[in-house]
Computed example of a mutant assay.
Amino acid sequence: MNIQNRIVSVDIFRGLTIVLMILVNNPGTWSHVYAPFLHAPWHGYTPTDLVFPFFLFIVGCSIVFAYQHKPVDASTYKKIAIRALKLIGLGLFLGAFTIHFPFFKDFENIRFPGVLQRIGVVFFFASILFINFNWKTLVGICAFLLIGYWLLMGFVPVNGMAPTFERAPNNMANYLDVLVFGSHSYKADYDPEGLLSTLPSIATALLGIFTGLILRSKRAKKEMLLIGMGFSMLVVGYVWDLFFPINKALWSSSFVMVTAGWANIILGLIYYFSDVKGIKFGSIFKYAGANAIVLYFLSSFISKIMGLVKVDGDTSLKAWLFNTVYVQDFLAMETSSLLYGLSLVSFYVLLGYILYRKKIFIKV
Rank of each mutant, 00 (worst) to 15 (best):
L196T: 07
G160M: 08
N109R: 15
P192A: 09
F107N: 01
N174T: 09
T137C: 10
E108K: 14
G91W: 09
Y175V: 06
Y175T: 02
I82W: 10
F93E: 01
F155D: 10
C142R: 02
G154W: 07
M153E: 14
V156Q: 01
C142Y: 03
M172N: 05
L85E: 05
A126L: 01
L152N: 04
E108S: 12
T164S: 15
L90D: 08
N159R: 12
I88H: 02
Y190S: 12
A162V: 13
M153L: 14
G154E: 09
I131H: 09
L152D: 02
L90P: 04
L85R: 00
V139R: 07
P157D: 13
D189C: 08
N132G: 11
G194N: 12
A126W: 00
D191P: 08
I82N: 00
A96M: 04
F93M: 09
S183P: 14
V115D: 05
L152Y: 13
L152G: 01
F112H: 01
P157K: 09
F101D: 00
L145F: 15
D177F: 00
S197F: 07
K86S: 09
L176Y: 08
A96W: 13
F133Q: 14
D191L: 05
S127N: 12
T164H: 06
G89H: 08
I99E: 00
V178W: 01
L146W: 10
V139M: 07
F101S: 00
G89T: 02
E193V: 06
I119K: 03
G154V: 12
S185E: 12
L87Q: 02
N134Y: 00
N159T: 12
A143L: 14
L90T: 01
I88N: 02
G148W: 08
W150T: 15
S183W: 09
E193R: 07
